[in-house]
């Protein structure tokens, strides 16, 4: 009898809280609770990043990392020069065609204050919300063009980003191969993501880059997602899959940029 009573009491209170939440009467209480946790969590996250920073165990490790960085830098310089050249050409061609610019977005910086509330989900909590014009579906990027995830929940002062690796994450993507194959990047595969629905006859090379296709509302084309690490292909299936390693390690991030509405 006592057990039945306690079960009834707990269930009633829980249902009541859920109803009050959906009616909107709990908003002031929720905002107050959030403001307490946000402050503590932001400090804890910042301290955590300090601990989590890459440390070298030996001088040799540091030297190797330095050599790698120099090699990558030389490679990058070449790429930057080519991009500049292409940008110039692109600008001239657009002028000649009298191209109308329609894809200008607004960018908003946000600080990460927490991560993964539920062990099952892969999410980030940021200190920007509806007050800053952030909406569900807005993409979050890092380092000037690497896609981190999409906004899936917004509150007045905070928002939740669903990372690419999350089991429910889905992003329309394009492979930078000869065919510019289109597919769907899906999470739920550990630290990697999988690009599905790539037509079976299109050729994919290891290390091909994957970028956003621009076919999704609010997500510009060309945001880097990652590189192909393996290809899964069966002769009897109409589609092949590519295992993609995301271009960014999200556990080292302390801030992101949210792309909001077009201007």
């Amino acid at each position: 009898m006592r057990r039945r009573n306690s079960l009834a009491a707990i269930t009633t209170v829980t249902i009541l809280v859920v109803i009050l939440h959906y009616i909107g009467w709990l908003i002031p209480v929720e905002n107050f609770l959030r403001s307490i946790v946000n402050r503590g969590s932001a400090i804890a996250y910042e301290q955590g990043l300090e601990i989590n920073k890459i440390k070298f165990k030996t001088v040799q490790d540091l030297e190797n990392a330095y050599k790698d960085a120099i090699e990558k830098n030389i490679e990058q310089e070449g790429i930057v020069a080519r991009i500049k050249l292409l940008e110039e050409q692109n600008k001239k061609l657009r002028q000649e065609l009298n191209y109308l610019t329609t894809t200008t977005y607004q960018y908003l910086g946000a600080e990460i204050i927490g991560k993964n509330v539920d062990p099952i989900a892969n999410t980030l909590i940021i200190n920007r919300g509806t007050k800053d014009n952030i909406k569900v579906g807005n993409p979050a990027i890092a380092y000037n063009g690497i896609l981190v995830g999409k906004i899936i929940r917004t509150e007045a002062d905070t928002s939740i980003i669903r990372l690419l690796q999350d089991g429910q994450s889905k992003i329309a993507a394009t492979l930078l191969n000869l065919d510019y194959s289109i597919g769907l990047i899906e999470g739920g595969y550990g630290v990697s993501v999988q690009m599905n629905f790539i037509p079976e006859n299109e050729k994919i090379e290891i290390n091909d880059q994957v970028v956003t296709s621009g076919l999704e509302e609010g997500i510009p084309r060309g945001l880097l997602i990652g590189n192909v690490k393996a290809v899964k292909k069966e002769a009897y299936e109409p589609f092949q899959q590519a295992i993609v390693k995301p271009a960014i390690q999200t556990n080292l991030l302390d801030s992101v940029v949210i792309i909001t509405n077009k201007l």
Binding site: V37, G40, S41, A44, Y45, G48
Partner: peptide, 8 residues
């Protein structure tokens, strides 16, 4: 706070 800001 530990759950949200540290466990990661």
């Amino acid at each position: 706070i530990i759950h949200i800001g540290v466990i990661y």
